[in-house]
Simulated assay, not measured.
Amino acid sequence: MLVLGIETSCDETGIALFDTERGLLSHTLYSQIAMHSEYGGVVPELASRDHIRRVLPLIRQALHSARCELRDINAIAYTQGPGLAGALLVGASIGAAMSFALNIPALGIHHLEGHLLSPLLSTPAPRFPFIALLVSGGHTQLMQVDAVGHYKLLGETVDDAAGEAFDKTAKLLGLGYPGGAALSQLARQGRPGKFKLPRPMLNSGDLNFSFSGLKTAVLTVINKQEITDQIRADIALAFQEAVVDVLTEKSLAALAQTGLKQLVVAGGVGANEQLRRNLSGKAAAKSATVFYPELEFCTDNGAMIAFAGALRLQAMPEAARQPAHSFTVNARWNLEMLETPEAD
């Protein structure tokens, strides 16, 4: 089965072709960072308009790279939510229209399920069941994953997500948008131990997170310092160490609580080098293994949507795989509310 994946949830247009027998055949991505950086954040209307311009050319590019034709596509998977409503509508409407025109099934995919399953595209891949740390600009959650569609929320952020805290702290340090990657780059020049920042909810006794107070602590430090380039780097390192410590300890606690030995890390913050190094080392000391998606699949992409769609379509009864006659999007969508795919 050849599945076309369409991702348009926010500020990246991702297209991919995944074959259930041959694997990932091609994927293309267009990032809107340069456009939104002028405004210091994502402008939803501009994001939607840019998706409209990019989707069809990227589909043609993906088909060309895979040496496939439109008639070769057997199904379409598009991001149904969560995300920006206008941006989601672009991908959903194009996916549904192509489904109807080609008389092939279409399936709306949960954006976070795509992230959660993306490490399965890599080698080696985890096996069910495992713990997943979903850590991105909009979400920080710990999930127990028993199978496709079988997800149990163990903990989540009560305020800012980790990626959001990275971006806000980067702004406090005078870095551009998006700030997360720039802050991590700056932290490499920081001197360990120069500043001590709090580890929010580290000893809360549950698996929830909080990063808003950490951002406020950074602001307090900044206001007390004569800021130089070196001081900015020192603060960036102290902030990153605090976030990494919390994410690591909470993830290890989730493994201990469930008795599982596999941890999957997905989402944009999963590309952070210090997080990967810290998590892998401490997990190995407890005989656990951490799995990460390839760096190109940490951010939003079409490959994870095509892959998640393929897994769900394979598990659906043949009669349920129908062309789209309508479509909806869900800007706010609880991952635990997903229906479990039923096999033939």
Score class of each variant (00 low, 15 high):
L2P: 03
N103W: 04
I131C: 06
L279V: 11
S9V: 11
Q32V: 08
Y177V: 03
K168E: 10
L25P: 02
G309W: 06
A106K: 09
I59L: 13
D167E: 07
T289C: 02
G179F: 00
S31T: 14
A266I: 12
R49L: 14
L219M: 15
A182L: 14
G137M: 03
T169D: 01
A16H: 05
I94T: 13
Q144W: 01
I109G: 00
T140R: 01
Q240D: 04
H51P: 09
A233I: 01
D206Y: 11
L247E: 05
P82H: 07
T248P: 05
I59N: 10
P200I: 05
L133M: 11
D234K: 01
L214I: 11
V265K: 05
M35Q: 14
G309M: 06
Q257F: 13
A319H: 11
P341N: 10
A162P: 02
Y151A: 04
P129H: 12
L172H: 08
P198H: 04
A331S: 15
S93H: 06
G190C: 07
I235K: 11
K196R: 13
T79H: 12
L4I: 11
Y78G: 07
A162L: 05
G5F: 03
E38I: 08
V43L: 14
I33K: 12
P323K: 07
N74I: 00
L202S: 12
G108R: 03
K171M: 02
S118W: 07
T299L: 08
P105K: 09
A106W: 02
Q141T: 04
Q141L: 05
T123D: 13
P82V: 05
G137E: 00
P293V: 04
G137R: 02
E249N: 15
T248D: 06
E339K: 14
L197T: 08
G86P: 09
F100C: 11
E339L: 10
T123F: 07
M201E: 01
E296P: 00
S65E: 15
F211T: 04
L335C: 01
H150D: 15
L237T: 00
M143Y: 15
L102E: 05
R232V: 00
L295Y: 03
H111N: 07
R188I: 02
L154Y: 09
T123Y: 07
P119S: 09
M304Y: 06
E273T: 14
D50C: 10
Q274E: 14
T8H: 07
Q230W: 01
S122G: 10
P57T: 12
L133I: 03
P119G: 10
A125E: 10
E164T: 07
I222L: 15
Y30D: 05
M1V: 09
D146F: 02
T299V: 13
T79Q: 11
S251P: 11
A324D: 01
A75D: 13
F100M: 13
R277I: 06
A236G: 02
D19K: 03
L255S: 11
K282G: 02
K261S: 15
G137P: 00
L255G: 12
